[in-house]
């Protein structure tokens, strides 16, 4: 069953057509990779899923419900979480707080004035956060301030912030960009280990990562899906070769 159904989505920035009649269908429980050269429109496409951008035309259906025209926090509450290309974390707060906050969103909802109880009395939320921190390997660092984390750890933290919500769909925008080989392997390992039941869309440049994770690959070039299929089908596709070997930039 398709959990996300993208139909004929178009998005232009002024004269630039960033997305051109994009169709995409993501099967529940799979990892769906989106690859393509820089500027192909991959991040723009994700932005259309989380309410950061509204497509000019087309539809985005999640579990049979349209995601267009509803606010980012409402989209999250329906079960879509996102890891950004540059980590969006709470830099002034501790690691534990960073993960407890999304847990609170999951447990208490989008808005609740619980100003009289202390955070300390909400053991169940803390337990959720600590469990995920164990899984991603940040538990020892839970009391330090997020701004002092390394780049790789910031990514890992943001992943923990999404995983703690146990989303139905997890969007990852270049989760290994700028990482060392070791950190990249760690991240791949993490994604294979944690939240395996969660449907994921991964934007990725690193072919090693793509082929280790993906069940399905869509290739985006100049705002259009030029190919889609199982990893082995994509590997040999001449159109993909062309897009990656500079044809798309000419």
């Amino acid at each position: 069953m398709a959990i996300l159904e993208v139909n004929d989505v178009n998005k232009a920035f002024g004269g630039l057509k960033a997305l051109n009649a994009v169709n995409l269908s993501v099967e529940e429980g799979t990892v769906h990779a989106i690859i393509g050269p820089n500027g192909a429109g991959k991040s723009t496409l994700l932005n259309c899923f989380v309410g950061r951008l509204i497509p000019d035309t087309g539809s985005v259906m999640f579990n049979g419900q349209s995601l267009l025209g509803i606010k980012p926090h409402q989209i999250n509450q329906t079960g879509v979480a996102r890891v950004f290309q540059t980590p969006e974390i709470f830099t002034d707060l501790s690691i534990l707080e960073n993960v407890m906050i999304p847990a609170f969103a999951k447990v208490d909802g989008a808005f609740r004035i619980n100003a009289w109880k202390t955070v300390g009395t909400r053991g169940e939320v803390r337990d959720m956060a600590e469990k995920v921190l164990e899984e991603v390997g940040l538990h020892e660092k839970r009391d330090i301030i997020a701004s002092s984390l390394s780049r790789g750890d910031k990514r890992r933290l943001e992943m923990a912030m999404c995983l703690v919500q146990d989303p139905k769909l997890l969007l990852l925008d270049e989760p290994t960009a700028g990482m060392s080989r070791a950190d990249t392997n760690n991240t791949v390992d993490l994604l294979q280990r944690v939240g395996t039941h969660i449907t994921k869309i991964v934007i990725e440049h690193d072919m090693h990562v793509v082929f280790s994770l993906a069940d399905h690959i869509s290739v985006l070039a100049q705002g259009t899906v030029i190919a889609g299929g199982k990893p082995e089908e994509i590997k040999g596709n001449p159109k993909v070769q062309e897009a990656y070997l500079g044809g798309a930039h000419a």
Binding site: H73, E88, F90, T91, I101, P102, F104, A110
Partner: peptide
């Protein structure tokens, strides 16, 4: 805690479901 989180990163708060 949510108020402090808003101060630090309002964008993250929105995409976190608040």
């Amino acid at each position: 805690m949510m108020l402090r989180a808003i101060k630090t990163n309002q964008v993250r708060m929105n995409y976190t479901g608040f």
